[in-house]
Amino acid sequence: WIARINAAVRAYGLNYSTFINGLKKAGIELDRKILADMAVRDPQAFEQVVNKVKEALQV
């Protein structure tokens, strides 16, 4: 799951650890299995999560 998430978030200019930190700051409580599945099956929803994380990180 970690490898999938890392590959997906790198397309948005983040790395895995920064993304996970941003999830916590944004108050998003999705587990890694769901995030990895979302990255593959629903990229639009995953992009929305990434955008919320970037807002929380102020990137």
Rank of each mutant, 00 (worst) to 15 (best):
N15V: 12
I5H: 00
K33G: 12
L30A: 14
D42K: 10
E55M: 10
Q48C: 05
K25N: 09
L35W: 03
Q44C: 04
L14P: 00
V50D: 00
F19S: 00
A8I: 04
D37S: 05
G27D: 10
E29V: 13
K52Q: 11
G22S: 04
V49A: 03
K24C: 03
I34D: 13
Q48D: 12
F46I: 02
P43F: 05
L35I: 11
K54N: 07
E55A: 12
N15E: 10
S17R: 15
D31G: 05
A45D: 07
A3R: 10
E55I: 13
A3N: 12
Q44F: 12
I2C: 03
A11M: 12
R41L: 14
E55N: 11
Q58R: 13
A56F: 12
K54S: 07
A7K: 15
K24D: 14
A7E: 15
W1D: 15
W1F: 15
V53D: 00
N15F: 06
V59F: 14
D42R: 10
P43H: 06
E47G: 12
N21R: 11
E55H: 08
L35V: 07
T18Y: 04
Q44E: 09
G27R: 08
V9K: 00
F19A: 01
K54M: 11
V9F: 02
I20P: 00
K52E: 13
G27F: 08
R32M: 15
R10A: 15
A26Y: 03
L35P: 00
G13F: 03
Q44G: 09
A8G: 02
A7P: 01
K33Y: 14
Q48W: 09
K24Y: 14
S17H: 10
I2S: 01
L14T: 02
S17A: 09
A8M: 04
K52Y: 07
I5R: 00
F46Y: 01
A11T: 09
L35Y: 05
D42F: 07
R4P: 04
A36R: 03
D37P: 03
A56G: 08
G22R: 01
D37C: 03
V49I: 14
I20K: 09
D42W: 07
A45M: 14
I28H: 05
K52I: 08
K25R: 10
V40W: 11
A8N: 02
G22W: 03
L14G: 01
G13D: 09
Q58E: 11
I5N: 00
R32F: 15
A11S: 08
N21W: 08
R32G: 14
P43G: 02
E55T: 08
E29S: 09
F46G: 00
R4L: 15
F46M: 03
D31Y: 02
I34H: 12
K25W: 11
G27E: 06
F46W: 10
I2W: 08
V53H: 00
L23N: 00
V40A: 11
A56I: 09
G27C: 03
R32I: 15
Q58K: 10
V59S: 15
A3P: 08
R41A: 14
N51Q: 11
M38I: 11
D42S: 10
L57W: 06
D42E: 09
E55Q: 11
G22K: 01
V40T: 14
A36M: 08
D31A: 06
P43Y: 05
N51P: 00
K25Q: 13
E29Q: 07
E47V: 06
D31I: 03
I34A: 08
A26K: 03
P43R: 05
K54V: 09
V40L: 11
S17Y: 11
I5M: 05
N21P: 05
M38W: 07
L57Y: 08
